[in-house]
Design a protein around this nucleic acid. Structure first.
Lengths: 203, 203
DNA sequence: GTCTATACACCGATAGAC
DNA sequence: GTCTATCGGTGTATAGAC
């Protein structure tokens, strides 16, 4: 006699080990945003997740392997955010707001900044294997925002001087900079500065 | 019989040890800008300067002491730059250009960024004794630029919406962000983005 | 997949001679 | 002021048992 119910229970039981890799990535992403890639260790991860350093080395033999996986995790976040922006048929300024809020939500917990800002700051110490992924992430983000701005200006919804890619750089860099700034100086300047960025697109 | 000439020679001889402290600060500032405070060591300094780690500990017993001295060095740079700006009776947009060029010159050597951006990125790992100095430096810089912008708008030389302090945040954070970005992606986007920032002040 | 145990390099920091 | 020598702690990484 077989016991199909057991099989079902097995299948729906929380499979802790199967998602270990993802658990590691998620907590490492948080540490990347709060402390930077060179300032967290396998020990930090092992203490949080309740397994030993050696176990983490099983999933990511070298820290550079973890670093590349973190870049892939950031890419996944980007994809989700960009798809959400393109899915909604809203004015261009609203698309920019969704982008800004997506960034804010991703760094909402205390003392977090944009993961790409964090990687950029440490770039001279990073394992070289991470650099191509980092470059691609930066490029894609900037070009996506530039496209939104350019289409908005063509629609007559937005107004700004110069080329869209340079205006996109100002938007992206200002938002991330304001996030990093608010970690030290508190949130007072954050919201009004973000509003100011929006205003510059409508003058 | 005395030997006054010897005394004179002694006084004009290059006093290597007397300036050691300053030598350390200057090279440490470079390492701060290229690698970040937590990613350079007393060993890095000792190899460059040709003295041992212990000797550096004589000048700066703890690394936090060196960190505080680095903040003072940054303040000195700020003072010089801000005085140069105020000394010249030039249009407000020209004062902004002097600020931007001052920042660029200070980070001209390869792979350097603004030292304050570097400290901000590492803020959760820094010795707490450095934080007040870091906050003051950030505040003073932002308020100085806000003053330049506000006076320029009152003069009719500049035109921008909203409050000067929020526009100043966009200017300062964009410039530093563009500097950090160009370290990874090359200089192509740097100059046109800086021009774009200037254009936004004259619309 | 997770563990214990360990290797080796580097870190900040101190003691004491010169 | 600079040195040699050393300490305790932590970093990444690996070997091998279970």
């Amino acid at each position: 006699m077989t016991h199909p119910s057991q099989t079902a229970i097995q299948a729906t039981r929380p499979q802790r080990s199967k998602n270990r890799k993802q658990q590691i990535i998620e907590f490492a992403l948080e540490l990347l945003q709060t402390r930077g890639f060179e300032n967290f260790s396998y020990q930090d991860l092992s203490l949080e997740l309740g397994i030993t350093k050696a176990s983490i080395h099983y999933h990511f033999p070298k820290k550079e392997d973890l670093g590349v996986a973190l870049c892939a995790g950031i890419q996944h976040w980007h994809q989700t955010m960009f798809q959400e922006i393109m899915a909604n048929d809203v004015p261009a300024i609203e698309k920019i707001r969704i982008y800004i809020n997506g960034l804010l939500n991703y760094a909402m917990g205390n003392n977090k900044i944009c993961p790409l800002s964090s990687l950029q700051a440490d770039v001279t110490s990073l394992p070289p294997a991470m650099l191509p992924a980092l470059r691609d992430l930066d490029n894609h983000e900037l070009e996506f925002i530039a496209n939104v701005l350019e289409q908005g200006r063509n629609n007559g919804e937005l107004s700004f001087p110069g080329e869209a890619i340079h205006q996109a750089a100002i938007v992206v860099l200002s938002v991330k900079g304001a996030l990093q700034y608010s970690r030290i100086h508190g949130p007072e300047l954050l919201q009004p500065t973000l509003k100011q960025i929006e205003q510059l697109l409508q003058t």
